[in-house]
């Protein structure tokens, strides 16, 4: 077992998570707003259109903990006389609350921790802004608020979960594209949904982050996508960087030992 796989905390309730079914998403951004309202996340005040379809918040970041992607696709007509069609994919992205969370692994202060719900949370009063988690996250989720120095991301509404409430974004979502619950149950639900969509001919439908054997041990927040992950700005096959950490430490130890030996060698010949 690698150093990263020390498992979920033993205490507490079963692991909580999100299943975001993008086939139900109407791109309303209620999740973005509800998240900001609940967590008092600052708004962007630049007031500039990105021109990237209806997405004007662009990516997850310190001030965007839920982000809705909009992808416009041309669907070439099957017969040449007909018009090309269009598809408009919408998907709400969030921190994956990885089973093997690189951000959490590398945090030197313990600001990031795994909660009793199995989620990954930054403690704002502890974070020293070292930014290590930022470079560690394979999904590009967590980021630093420049003017503040600390990092921020989705907490899966840690405070609300503590009060037995569902996260603000999931609660708001008009079509239940965002489903919150016990991860095992969500996985079962997602499997059924996938099958249903495949039966309906939605060939592009696939689950993303559902597999506990993937590079991050499965996501605590996983997705049903209708196209390749990278189309949505998601890495196709992310791996938790700390999976290779034991190997790295071994190499480093080798190099360190080599240095010491080398240093001894250059002084070979004793006193001058």
């Amino acid at each position: 077992m690698s150093v990263t796989q020390l498992g979920m905390p033993a205490i507490g309730v079963p692991r909580k998570g999100f299943f975001t079914d993008t086939s139900l998403c109407i791109g309303c951004k209620a999740c973005e707003v509800a998240c900001k309202e609940w967590n008092s996340v600052p708004a962007d005040t630049s007031m500039q259109l990105t021109g990237e379809s209806f997405d004007n918040t662009s990516a997850l970041g310190a001030d965007t903990w839920r982000h809705v992607a909009f992808i416009e696709q041309k669907v070439p007509a099957t017969d040449p006389s007909a018009h090309d069609g269009v598809k408009w994919l919408m998907s709400s992205d969030v921190c994956k609350h990885c089973t093997n969370a690189a951000c959490l692994d590398v945090c030197p202060t313990g600001a990031l921790f795994r909660t009793e719900h199995g989620t990954v949370v930054v403690q704002q009063d502890v974070c020293n802004g070292c930014g290590y988690c930022v470079s560690a996250c394979p999904y590009g989720v967590i980021d630093q608020r420049k003017e503040d120095g600390r990092v921020f991301k989705c907490t899966m509404c840690y405070d609300r979960l503590g009060a037995g409430e569902e996260p603000a974004c999931a609660k708001a979502c008009p079509t239940k594209s965002i489903q919150y619950g016990e991860l095992d149950e969500l996985r079962a639900r997602a499997d059924a949904r996938l099958e249903e969509l495949h039966e309906r001919g939605e060939e592009g439908a696939r689950l993303y982050g559902r597999d506990p054997d993937d590079g991050v041990g499965g996501d605590g927040a996983f997705f049903l996508l209708l196209d390749e992950p990278e189309t949505y700005g998601l890495p196709p096959d992310p791996v938790v960087t700390t999976r290779d950490l034991p190997a790295m430490w071994k190499r480093a130890a080798g190099a360190a030992a080599g240095m010491l030996v080398g240093a001894a060698v250059i002084f070979w010949g004793g006193r001058k």
Binding site: G129, S135, C137, T231, L234, P235
Partner: peptide, 16 residues
Amino acid sequence: EFTSYYGRPILKQPTW
């Protein structure tokens, strides 16, 4: 050849 989301980065740049 690969698809991306408006060519945007997937990862965050190091804050360092």
